[in-house]
C-alpha cells in the first residue's frame, strides 16, 4: 500500500517539475502555482506513504537503497518548500523538483518489498542518524541548485544579452544568500549526523572511527564545506567561487550516499554480518 502512495508522489513530483519548467519557458504565473501545489500534494502523499511504511515495517524505513532514495527525495521536496516560502524563488523549483523526481524515479527500479532489518541496523540511532544526514543532504541539494542557477545567470549577465531566461532568474545576491543560508543549516546537520554515526559505530562495532569508505567520504564532504565556510567568512569567497564549491560539495554528498555503495563495492558493509 505504501508503494502506491510513493508512485502517486512520483507523479506529483513529475507534474511539479513540468510546471516549473513551463514557468521558465512560458513565464506563466499559473504554472508556478501549479508547480507549488503539485509539490505540496506530492510531499503530503509521500509523507503518508513513509509513515505507512514505518508502521508496516516496524522500523524507520531508511535501511536500504530503495528507502533511502525515497526519503532523500522527500527531504529535498520538504526543504525546497521551506526555502521557497522564505525567498519566493520560483525558478529554484525548475531545478530542485527534477532532482526530487529523479531520486524517486530510481526507486521504481528497486525491489519495494519491506525487508527484514539486519541486526546491525536495529538501533534507535538509525532514525536519528539517518534523518539528520538526509535533511542536511537535502539542504545541500538546494544549495547545489542555487549554485547552478548562479553560474547560468552570471554567464548571461557577462554576455550582456538579456535572454528570456535571464529575466526569470533571481538576482545574484539572492542566490548567494541562499547558498550561505543553506551552508548555515546544512553544515551543523552534517556535523551532528557524523557525530551520531560515530556514537552508533562505537556502540555497535567498538570503534567510533574506522576510516571506512562511507565514513571517510562523509569527512571529505565535511572538509569541503568547512573550506567553503572559511572562504566565505574570512577570505570573502562570494558568488562564483561559493557557487562552484556548493556544486562540488554536493558532488561529494552524492558520492558519499550513492557512489560509495555502487562504485566501491565490497568495501562498505554496514548491513552485512557474519558472511
Amino acid at each position: 500500500m505504501n508503494a502506491f502512495f510513493l508512485k502517486l508522489a512520483a507523479l506529483f513530483y513529475l507534474a511539479g517539475s513540468l510546471s516549473y519548467l513551463a514557468y521558465v519557458v512560458f513565464m506563466s504565473e499559473k504554472a508556478v502555482s501549479a508547480g507549488r501545489f503539485s509539490l505540496l500534494f506530492g510531499f503530503g502523499v509521500h509523507l503518508v506513504g513513509f509513515l505507512m511504511r514505518y508502521f508496516e515495517a516496524g522500523y524507520t524505513p531508511i535501511t536500504n537503497l530503495f528507502e533511502s532514495l525515497s526519503f532523500f527525495s522527500l527531504a529535498v521536496v520538504g526543504v525546497f518548500l521551506v526555502v521557497e516560502r522564505r525567498y519566493r524563488l520560483k525558478v529554484l523549483g525548475a531545478f530542485v523538483s527534477p532532482i526530487a523526481f529523479i531520486l524517486i524515479l530510481f526507486t521504481a527500479f528497486l525491489p519495494s518489498e519491506i525487508q527484514t532489518i539486519p541486526p546491525a541496523l536495529q538501533s534507535y540511532w538509525l532514525p536519528i542518524h539517518a534523518t539528520l544526514l538526509f535533511v542536511g543532504d537535502a539542504i545541500f541539494a538546494v544549495a547545489f541548485a542555487a549554485g547552478i542557477i548562479y553560474l547560468i545567470q552570471e554567464r548571461q549577465l557577462k554576455r550582456k544579452k538579456l535572454g528570456p531566461l535571464m529575466r526569470r532568474l533571481p538576482p545574484l545576491d539572492v542566490l548567494d544568500e541562499i547558498n550561505h543560508r543553506c551552508l548555515t543549516f546544512g553544515f551543523p546537520l552534517l556535523t551532528v549526523g557524523i557525530i551520531t554515526g560515530a556514537i552508533w559505530a562505537e556502540y555497535a562495532w567498538g570503534s567510533y572511527w574506522s576510516w571506512d569508505p562511507k565514513e571517510t567520504w562523509s569527512l571529505i564532504t565535511w572538509l569541503l564545506y568547512a573550506a567553503l565556510l572559511h572562504g566565505r567568512l574570512t577570505v570573502g569567497w562570494r558568488g562564483r567561487k561559493a557557487a562552484i564549491l556548493a556544486i562540488v560539495g554536493f558532488g561529494a554528498v552524492l558520492f558519499t550516499f550513492l557512489g560509495v555503495n555502487l562504485l566501491l563495492p565490497g568495501l562498505h558493509s554496514y548491513a552485512s554480518f557474519g558472511r
Binding site: 572538509l223 569541503l224 573550506a227 577570505v235
Partner: peptide, 8 residues
C-alpha cells in the same frame, strides 16, 4: 583553506 582541501 588549502589544508582542508588537501586533507579532503
Amino acid at each position: 583553506i588549502p589544508v582542508l582541501i588537501i586533507l579532503a
